[in-house]
């Protein structure tokens, strides 16, 4: 029983990652693909933050009377990763907009037919 609770976070993270990946692969619409990528990445962020948590600890900001802090390093890494994520999202969505104006559609099955077979 304790195994379930101790690993619950990890498993949920895995499920979320897989949902994100599934959306990326199956989505026909490019915007939805970007949403899927974001879900996938957020799940990874959750994995990092989960490992930084110490039960009974507090946020890593120095305070009187606190001896146990959670680990600040994963927080720093994920701050960086979130920024990377939004940067990718912005570039991806601008590509979607350009694709829309160039092809008139952002549904994958529709524009792939017009494209030369690579």
């Amino acid at each position: 029983m304790s195994l379930i609770f101790e690993h619950f976070n990890h498993w949920v993270v895995v499920i979320l990652m897989m949902i994100g990946l599934y959306i990326v692969i199956t989505a026909n619409n490019l915007v939805k693909k970007v949403v899927g990528l974001n879900i996938f990445q957020s799940a990874v962020f959750l994995m990092y933050i989960t490992m930084g948590k110490v039960v009974g600890g507090t946020a890593p900001i120095l305070a009187e009377g606190v001896t146990q802090y959670s680990n600040p390093l994963p927080h720093v890494l994920i701050l960086t990763a979130i920024v990377v994520g939004v940067a990718t999202t912005a570039v991806g969505l601008s590509l979607v907009l350009r694709i829309k104006s160039a092809y008139g559609t952002i549904e994958e099955n529709e524009f792939q037919n017009k494209e030369d077979v690579i």
């Binding site: 957020s42 507090t58 927080h75 994920i78 701050l79 979130i82 994520g85 939004v86 969505l93």
Partner: peptide
């Protein structure tokens, strides 16, 4: 999970900027 800085960023970026875009 005690990651207040990250939460702050996720709220402003994920729920804010990304959604607007």
């Amino acid at each position: 999970l005690d990651a207040v800085d990250v939460a702050f960023t996720e709220a402003s970026v994920g729920a804010g900027i990304s959604t607007v875009l």
